[in-house]
Computed example of a mutant assay.
Amino acid sequence: MNATIGKLAANRLFWPVVMLLALFAINLVAFPGFFAITIKDGHLFGSLIDILRNGAPMLIIAIGMTLVIATRGIDLSVGAICAIAGAVACSILLGSSDPSNPATVAVAIAVAVGISLLLGVWNGFLVAVLGIQPIIATLILMTAGRGVAMLITEGQILTVNSPPFKAIGSGFWVGVPIAVVIAAVVFAVAALITRRTALGLMIESVGINPEASRQAGVRARGLLFAVYTFCAFCAAIAGIILTANQTAADANNTGLFIELDAILAVVIGGTSLMGGRYSLTGTLVGALVIQTLVTTVYTVGIPPIATMVFKAAVVTVVCLLQSPATTAAFASWRRTAALRTAGKEMAA
């Protein structure tokens, strides 16, 4: 039994899952109907559904962030890209004669995503070609990006009246929130591409040793362009969901600090900031932990202003439990337990 527990504890997903279950338990005690899911007008409602819907934008960004961090990089500009994508989409809708036309909404989204992809290419150029440190390269766009969004919106909050656009953020498809469906599709595509092809292995090799991977024939420069562009794509999708949910483009607040939540989700999920091995499943669990923590703060009546403190506490605890010292301690415990079991069997 002890050996089994030690083996489970050695898995990098063990402690994040334990933390998630602990948060579920706290919510269940504070709100007995926490796990209840109801169906109204063919749509699913409940606390768990709210966690999935509200956490979808952050999860989408965290997926892109995972691949960037796996290459030993970081992207601090995703929040600004969210604001730019939302500003562009709303500007096009407001400038059209029929913002409720699905074709107009599709054009607005396509242009917003296209501009965001160019921003991702810009980040990739700074990192891969000019050799600027990722934290500095993306800090440039993080700082200037919201200014660009403010220029697009002319310093105003652009409110749009477009049911098809609003549905992206608050609508349902087959009873499931559309935002959750989009997040699931992005996760599935990223997992299939990186784990069913050699792309994931090449990303890990670049993160572990860029020079060795280059000598092995991996085109690190092109790979860096790809991951930063994909991360910008994820930020654009998340920004459109956030903007559609509010039916307004707010350059100052859309995606504010979402880059920090995404990084926290990646770290909680067990991906190392030093690059190399990564886990999209771990990122999914990490995103659920972050969003469930936010829900817990509201459920138990803690002032929302203290949310960041609790996030820091959770990340600290999980990182300590995932540290090499803790892992070595559990490995030692597992070996001791196995020796004791073997001794008892020999004695018997």
Rank of each mutant, 00 (worst) to 15 (best):
A3M: 06
I109C: 15
G200Y: 04
M346E: 14
L151R: 05
I136H: 13
L242F: 10
T194E: 10
P304G: 00
T296W: 12
L52Q: 07
N27K: 03
L23D: 11
F257H: 06
R12W: 02
F310D: 04
T38Q: 14
A80W: 09
M65F: 08
G33S: 00
Q133I: 05
V88Y: 10
A220L: 06
I240Y: 12
F257L: 15
A287E: 09
V17C: 09
T326V: 13
T4E: 03
G155P: 13
Q215S: 13
I140Q: 03
I109T: 07
A342R: 14
I74K: 01
N245D: 15
L67P: 14
A244L: 01
G270T: 05
Y298H: 08
A212D: 00
T143Q: 05
S162M: 03
G147T: 12
N101T: 13
Y228W: 11
H43I: 00
A306E: 11
A265G: 03
M58V: 02
I157H: 12
A87F: 09
N2Q: 06
M308V: 14
A83Q: 03
I63T: 04
V294W: 10
Q133C: 02
A56N: 03
C90T: 08
V185Q: 06
A312L: 14
I115A: 08
A338N: 09
V174G: 01
V218N: 05
F165G: 06
A325F: 05
A10E: 03
I157D: 02
I193F: 13
D250N: 15
L48S: 04
S96I: 09
W15Q: 01
V300Q: 11
L20Q: 10
P210F: 00
L280R: 11
F257W: 15
F310V: 08
V113W: 10
I109F: 07
T327N: 01
R221G: 02
M19E: 06
A331M: 04
V121Q: 01
V105P: 12
M274G: 10
T159C: 09
T299P: 09
I152A: 03
C90M: 06
A167S: 14
A226V: 12
G42H: 07
W15N: 08
A85I: 09
